[in-house]
Structures are given as C-alpha cells and as structure tokens.
Simulated scan of single mutants.
Amino acid sequence: MRGAVGYTRAVLFRQLEYLVALSRERHFARAAQACHVSQPALSEALRKLEEELDMPLVRRGRKYEGLTPEGERIVVWAQRILADRDALKDEVDALRSGLSGRMRIGSVPTASGAVAELTGPFCAAHPLVTVEVIADMQSVDILRQLQNFELDAAVTYLREDLSGNFHTVPLYQERYVLLLTAADGLARRTTATWAEAAGLSLCLLTGTMQGRRVLDELFARAGTQPSPRLETDSVAALFAHVRTGQWASIVPHAWLHVFGVPHGMRAVPLVEPAAAVPVGLVIAAREPDSVMARALTDIAGTTDVASALERVPGDPGR
C-alpha cells in the first residue's frame, strides 16, 4: 500500500510539473522538451489529470490555445505545491547534511554586476549548492517569477510600490555616471549635468527596462528628454559602443567595479539632480520561507555590498 501511495504521489507531481511547463512555454512540444518527455506522454498525462479532477484544464485545437479558466486556477496551486515540495526537500537535506541543491537568482541588467558580491560568500558558506544567475531580466518579469516560484531570489530596484508579497534587504544606492571617450570636452570636467548629457549622441538601455525608466525620470526632473541613437538591453553593450568613439552613455557607478574605467574613456558623475536609487535583494514572502532564500538573505545581511561596489579596479585612490 505504501508503495502504491508513493507511486500515486509521484505521478501527481509529474502531472503538475507538465501543467506548469505548458503554462510557461505555451507550446506542447516545448513543454515536453523542458520536461524531458515525449509530446504524446505529456499530453496523455494532462488528459489523465483532467479526468482525475473532472474538469478541462487545457483548450485544445489544432495547436495549443491556452488554459481554461479552471486550468489557470489549478496552475497557481500546482506552482505552489511544487515549490513547497522542493522547499521541503531542501529543508530536509539542509538538516541532514547541509544546504544543497540549486539556487536561482534573477537580476535587472544594471544590478547584475552586484550579484557576485553575494554569490561569492554564499557559495563559500554552502559548497554543495549550485547557483544559477539569470541576468538582464525586466523588473516586472522578476516579480512575476518570484511569485510563481521560478526564482528563489532577485536583485532589483526597491520600489515604493513593492507589495507585502515580498521581503527586501537593501544592498546599495545606485548612482550614475556619464561614460564617454576621453576626447570629449565633457571628459575633462569633474561633473556633468543631465541636461548636458541629453545633448550628446547617446546609447541607452531600452525603454522597456526599469533602469531606463529611472533615467527618463531623472532627465525629466532636469527639464529635458534624451533622444538616444541606439538602445540595448545590456550594460556591457553600452560600454562596447562607447569604446567605438561614436557614442556616450549613462551607466550605474556600480558597473565601474566590474569593468573599471576602460582605457580611452572617462566616467563623469552626473548632477542636477545628483540622484541615488535603492537596489536590494528581493524574495517572495511565504511561510515557511524557502531555506535557499533564507540562507541568501543571511548572507546579504552581513555583506557590505555598498562598500565593495565603491572600489574601482585600477583606481589607486580606492
């Protein structure tokens, strides 16, 4: 009897995994590939789940047409059940032999350079854990994936409208510098204004990124609006384009900790306004909490990320 119960439980978990994968991938073949099964096996398992629940979960036609309203509700429960199963396994493993498994961390592009300040001490403290960092994410996707249990934690902007569904740990204040070639006249200045930056041939992050929306707000406070000639979703790409000598850009000061100030470039602090935006660790609020998220939160609480990001490679004054 115990074996039959264990088999039934395993089948249910597998069916729920298939349903969550289909909801995420929105395509039968891709969902099957993500679950490492054949498409007929995935489809049959979902049909059996529908029979067991006595309700339709998937709208079927010649191709995937989405989940039914009932399916949309069930997939929320499925995500929670699977997350609780994984969290329980992590907790038991941690009690038995120390934390192990896989930690998934998301990051907005502007903050991805700061993630290493957490993953280094985290991996040193928990050598059995493998860490996956998903960088260059949009903030809205980060919050959605935290709530859907697709991420364990994230480093992103600490907005005032973050709901009670999340816990946060402040890490540092994001400040901004004008990155340009040494030949530019502004490169000889100790500061530059946002209005002056708006008049340059700029490459900036795309308008869909939270980091770009922050910049647009600061430009608006200065009474101006940029007209970037080039946009990208990568901070590294901004550095690469400035290197060509055709562009200037605005980058977070924290990224100088990663790249330094490359040869032939200058980083000039921006003023009028001189702004700083809080960035921190964000985890989903759940009870009991995830042992992975709890361990990373402990690291964040004892790591001085702000001081570390002030050290610029190659700068003898730091």
Rank of each mutant, 00 (worst) to 15 (best):
A153Y: 02
R80I: 14
L256R: 01
L309M: 08
V155G: 10
G61W: 04
R159N: 12
E272I: 00
T193H: 11
R59W: 00
V214R: 06
P316K: 09
A83M: 05
A41E: 12
L99A: 11
R266W: 01
A78G: 09
G98C: 03
H257A: 07
A87L: 07
I74L: 11
T156N: 06
R189M: 04
A10C: 00
R85C: 14
D86F: 06
V5S: 07
W255G: 01
G101I: 05
P273C: 07
R266S: 12
G317K: 10
R144N: 10
D298E: 14
G6Y: 11
V268G: 01
W255E: 15
V312F: 02
M265K: 03
R318H: 05
E44S: 12
A183R: 13
V251G: 02
L218F: 08
V291W: 00
W255V: 10
V140G: 03
Q33S: 10
Q79W: 06
S227C: 11
F166S: 06
T297S: 09
V5E: 14
D90M: 10
A31W: 00
L128K: 15
L88G: 02
G185W: 08
V140A: 13
R30K: 14
L158G: 09
V271K: 10
A267W: 05
A124L: 08
A293N: 03
A94D: 15
T244P: 09
R221T: 07
P109R: 13
L88E: 05
L179E: 03
S249Y: 11
Y7H: 13
R294P: 00
E217R: 15
P252L: 07
A183T: 12
A197K: 06
E50H: 08
R243D: 04
L309V: 10
